[in-house]
């Protein structure tokens, strides 16, 4: 199933996510693919493209933590996007969906 999510969590710019997950929609659903878009900054930009691919296979509930870990590992500097911001948007969807 596909989730189209939009949010502007505290401290973040407008974030949009398209996430394909294995049903049913629960916190432990695995992400098949995802795209993160918005008016945030991430330098180097190309490393962010790679980071998105590395998030495939993780679960919805682990997304934010994994995102922050990959940002550190890949030496990315991000402004206007955080793992907790992504989690907040997903939590809202899970709350609505369950």
């Amino acid at each position: 199933m596909r989730l189209e999510l939009v949010g502007k969590p505290e401290g973040c710019k407008l974030l949009r996510m398209t996430i394909d997950v294995e049903p049913p929609l629960v916190p432990s659903s695995r992400i098949r693919s995802l795209s993160i878009r918005g008016d945030f900054f991430a330098v180097p930009e190309e490393a962010f493209d790679e980071l998105e691919h590395k998030l495939e296979g993780t679960t919805l509930e682990e997304l934010g933590k994994k995102f922050d870990g990959l940002v550190r590992q890949n030496g990315l500097e991000c402004l206007g996007i955080t793992g907790s911001g992504l989690d907040e948007i997903i939590q809202k969807e899970l709350h609505n969906g369950i």
Partner: peptide, 9 residues
């Protein structure tokens, strides 16, 4: 548009 933005959005 910014590098990370979706054109049609």
């Amino acid at each position: 548009i910014g590098y990370f933005q979706g054109l049609h959005e």
